[in-house]
C-alpha cells in the first residue's frame, strides 16, 4: 500500500503515452504533406552521402534528402492507412450487421463471401485488385479496403448475434423499448469499442501491405515518395554499401506500425469497464 501515488495510475500513464504516439503520427503525416515538394528535389552535387549532421538519413543516388523523403513516404503511408482502415471498417460494420440481422440466407451468403476472401492469400488478391483497378493510389486503396474487412465483419456478426439473445436485451424488448433504441443504447456501447480498436489495429496491416505491393511494383507509382518505393529502390544500392537507404526508412516504418498497434491496444483496454480501476 505504500507504493500508491496520489491521483496517478496506470490508466493515466497509458493515456499520456497514447497522446504522445498520436501527436507523433499526426505531425509526421502533416510534415510529410508540407514537404512533399522538397522530397522530389534532386541535387547531383550531394548524391550518395552517408548520414551526417546536415543529412541525418543520408542522401540517395539522385541526391535527394532521405530524411525528408522518408517523412513524406511515411505521411503517405499514414494517410493511406487511415483511409483504407476506415473504408474496411465501414464495410465490416455493414456486412457484420447484415449477417446478424437479415436472417439465415444473408448470413450464409456473407459468411461464404468472408471465407472466399480469406481463403485466397491476402497479397495475391491485393495485387490482383490493385492491378485491375489500374494501380496507383486508387488501386491500392481499393485493393486494401476490399481485403481487410473480413475478420472484423466476423467479429461484429458474432457480437451482435450474442447480444440479440442476451437476457438484458430481451428484457428491454419486453419493457417496450423500440428496436432502434435497443440498437443504439444497448448494442452500440458493446460494438463501438470493438469497431474502433479493430479499425486502429487495421492501420499497421494496411500500411505494411501498401508498402509491400508498392515494393513489388503493383502499387504506387515510382515517382511518389512512398516507403515501399524507397525500399525497393534502395535494394539496388544495398549491395554497394549504401546501408542508410534502407535502414532508416525501414526502422521508421516499423516504429509507425508499432505506435498504431500500441494505440489500438491501449484504447481497447481503456474502453473496457473490466479494467476501469487499474
Amino acid at each position: 500500500m505504500t507504493e500508491i501515488k496520489r491521483g496517478w495510475n496506470r490508466r493515466k500513464t497509458m493515456v499520456v503515452l497514447m497522446a504522445f504516439s498520436m501527436i507523433f503520427l499526426a505531425s509526421v503525416a502533416i510534415l510529410g504533406h508540407i514537404f512533399r515538394e522538397e522530397a522530389m528535389v534532386t541535387d547531383f552535387s550531394r548524391k550518395n552521402l552517408a548520414p551526417c549532421l546536415q543529412y541525418p538519413f543520408g542522401t540517395d543516388f539522385m541526391g535527394r534528402d532521405m530524411l525528408i523523403r522518408t517523412i513524406a513516404g511515411l505521411s503517405m503511408s499514414i494517410r493511406l492507412g487511415l483511409l483504407t482502415a476506415f473504408i474496411s471498417a465501414v464495410i465490416a460494420c455493414v456486412m457484420g450487421l447484415a449477417a446478424a440481422v437479415l436472417g439465415k440466407f444473408a448470413d450464409g451468403l456473407i459468411l461464404g463471401l468472408i471465407d472466399l476472401v480469406m481463403g485466397i492469400p491476402h497479397i495475391l488478391l491485393l495485387i490482383l485488385i490493385s492491378f485491375a483497378m489500374g494501380k496507383g493510389f486508387i488501386g491500392v486503396v481499393i485493393g486494401i479496403s476490399l481485403t481487410h474487412w473480413t475478420s472484423l465483419a466476423r467479429l461484429i456478426r458474432g457480437e451482435v448475434l450474442q447480444l440479440k439473445e442476451s437476457q438484458y436485451i430481451r428484457i428491454a424488448e419486453k419493457l417496450g423499448i423500440s428496436k432502434g433504441k435497443i440498437a443504439v443504447k444497448h448494442m452500440l456501447p458493446h460494438i463501438a469499442p470493438q469497431l474502433l480498436v479493430g479499425l486502429i489495429l487495421m492501420f499497421p496491416h494496411a500500411i505494411l501491405h501498401e508498402a509491400s505491393i508498392t515494393f513489388l511494383g503493383f502499387g504506387l507509382s515510382p515517382e511518389q515518395p512512398a516507403i515501399g518505393v524507397i525500399l525497393s529502390e534502395s535494394m539496388k544500392y544495398l549491395a554497394m554499401g549504401k546501408w542508410w537507404l534502407a535502414l532508416f526508412p525501414g526502422l521508421l516504418l516499423v516504429l509507425t506500425v508499432l505506435l498504431f498497434h500500441y494505440i489500438g491496444e491501449t484504447l481497447g483496454r481503456l474502453t473496457d469497464p473490466g479494467h476501469a480501476h487499474r
Binding site: Q167, Y168, K174, L175, G176, K185, H186, P273
Partner: peptide
C-alpha cells in the same frame, strides 16, 4: 410494454454491463 413482467433469478445477466444504473431505472415505465 408487456403488462406481465418477469424478474429473473440472476440480476447480473438482467442488466447491461455497459449502462449505468440510472439508465437501467430509466428503462422502467
Amino acid at each position: 410494454y408487456c403488462p406481465v413482467q418477469m424478474i429473473w433469478q440472476h440480476p447480473e445477466q438482467s442488466v447491461n454491463p455497459r449502462l449505468r444504473m440510472k439508465e437501467v431505472l430509466n428503462e422502467g415505465d
